[in-house]
Design a protein around this nucleic acid. Structure first.
Lengths: 216, 216, 216, 216
DNA sequence: CATGAATGAGCATTCATTCAT
DNA sequence: GATGAATGAATGCTCATTCAT
């Protein structure tokens, strides 16, 4: 699952496709670390050990590099979620799978996902709009799962599906910010923890206990 | 907590202290919108209707402006949380209050909070370290509340306090990203929804129910 | 003939209006010498003894500088020609005046005129179109004078007004290319020579003589 | 004089000499359209449908390409003019033939001629000097014809041969600038019109009428 | 207080050119 | 013959910052 770790390829025979991907990968890394506007094309070139001008053999502008990075960062999210939503499982199980699907990409392309989350606002208008539509479609998929759960009684009837969608995504998205630091924490543990937190809540023991304003 | 409603102040005789605050406020607005490196001092000057060079009468560098913005964005978080944590209420109620305390600043200085969250990584090393310590202290306060809840039986015994802390903060922090769009949604509704989500979970009926891998 | 228009200037500091004009003047000089694309902004700065970046305080792009230069290079041509065309003189005299009017600007702003002639094709589409209209209007003014001359019998009846217009303009325009080298040659001499060449032709004796294909 | 009708030659086995000529032809086209410094080697390659690097198989530098283009643009002018000047015809007829000789190359290699006229100033010093000598020799040939005409009484005695040479060349050269637009206008018409304009002048009817300053 | 003018440092981008294949 | 890959050297332009007034 880990990236094949293609050596920076000094030898004559590197696949050109691979080379272009390496460039974008370096861009992802640098954009993730310093932000789009905080990163220079020189930084990207330094990662690759090539001259700055050489970058432009592979992509025509820094902005286009960002588009590529964001595209790969967003890749598959909507499709995976749609497949899960269309499945036969209980909504509770679907929720678990959605969390897994949301977090998995962080394992093999964390920088891409981070850049997609944090730097997509710097995309040129056209691609920003396009990607915005995908994001909203993604949110809608989750919202629909929540609604289905409410309808079939698996989830609380008084849930605000939209707000809860944002809450779930916020919680899960935050993982991108600290996943490196906590690299030891297996992603499965995180998934399980968040899944139970979302389904059962924090409260201990017996059932329908309503937390009261004044508490115990 | 109420918005100070400082009129954009075109008057000649405004308190110099106030004027300096206006500058920082404009910086916060622009940094929030375009990011630190994506924003220019010209952008800030434009918001204020003054010349770019005039900014330097009030702060010595763009970086220092970011420090001011982040400082005000982080202001009070730790103290407020510490006060809540030290209070006599149940940990469940403390959790509710912590959420309120976390979200309130968004009401009167949303740009500052956003910049603090998203741009603090561009701070010079010294202040980044300082602010990092505060953040970790803040996280620890919450973690301790969770641990206390586990100890006294209010919270599930198998909770990972650190992971759940991150989850809660992630969920709550995400509000900063969409609060504008959902301006209609009263902050109280959001607090209530997230509070219940965290305490009770999403599942209907008895909280004790263990969600199973294969679900319904 | 030089533009006076010196409004109240400040102290030792030169009038900002003047300064901006100086920049454009340097640009004209450099564009005339090396062509638009052959000239660098550094070249312009060198002429002025300032740093290259300082140019951008006065104009936003090299292209805009070219627009200014061309604008001043084209300035007044159409108006002057229209005034002459509308005058009471004979068309023959009008022709003489048109030649004078065409050449005079070379005396006080030769570089501007040259750049207008040779580099206008490098203008951005919008201003190129605008200036193209002016040029065609200018040509039409001359063409109309020729037609009037044909109608009233001052000029040969079998003249092709359009072709002759181009011929006249071509002849007169060529002066821009060698005026420097021949600086000794007074402009009045050139005007007179070209005027007579155009009106009487080269042939000695009776103008009515038809040159024959086999000549002599 | 007829266009060689070189098919754009996609075939692999074209004569290498021919191929090199095609490269230069493409260069001429692009230099004519955008100017030497405004044209890129990529532009030239695009015209040919080959890669940019491939150009360097045929010529060692862009500057050398310009030398070739200018050389072909200037080719034959001096020789043709010298032959005409040495002929037995009347100077009037010689003038007509000189005009024809000057304009003919525009028919089969207009881009070369244009580049020679407009871009020769960007040639490296050595070839610029060489070509400058040819040009001056060419001008001298014409000047001598004029002088001969003055001496033998065919031309007006008060003509300034040098100035009139420039005037004639300017008028005739200008054709290069608008020949495309007026492609309908047969070159013969232009020659005839300019020839009569130069010999007889614009004025109608009876002979030695001196145009007066105040005219009709 | 504020600004006009200027600039140093840097940045994205271009482009002619090289060279191994 | 031709090209893919790469690069050195600009080039136009931006921007935070300075400073005399």
């Amino acid at each position: 699952m880990a990236v094949a770790a293609v050596p920076s390829s000094r030898r004559a025979r590197s696949n050109p496709r691979r080379r272009a991907d390496e460039i974008i990968e370096a861009a992802a890394q640098v954009f993730a670390e310093r932000g789009f506007h905080g990163a220079t094309t020189q930084d990207i070139a330094d990662v690759l050990g090539i001259r700055q001008a050489s970058l432009y053999y592979y992509f025509p502008s820094k902005e286009v590099a960002l588009e590529h990075v964001c595209a790969r960062g967003a890749e598959g999210f909507l499709e995976a979620a749609a497949v899960i939503a269309a499945g036969p499982e209980s909504v509770t199980e679907k929720l678990r799978r959605l969390i897994i699907a949301h977090l998995s990409p962080l394992l093999d392309r964390p920088d891409f996902v981070r850049v997609f989350h944090n730097e997509r606002k710097h995309l040129p208008l056209a691609s920003r709009r396009r990607i915005g539509k995908t994001v909203r479609a993604y949110e809608r998929v989750i919202e629909e799962v929540l609604k289905a759960g409410i309808r079939n009684g698996e989830f609380r009837a008084d849930l605000d599906p939209r707000l809860v969608t944002f809450g779930i995504l916020g919680m899960v998205k935050s993982v991108a910010g600290w996943f490196d630091k906590e690299a030891g924490a297996k992603i499965e543990r995180i998934v399980e923890e968040f899944f139970r937190l979302l389904v059962e809540g924090i409260a201990a023991g017996g059932g329908g206990r309503r937390p009261t304003r004044q508490g115990g």
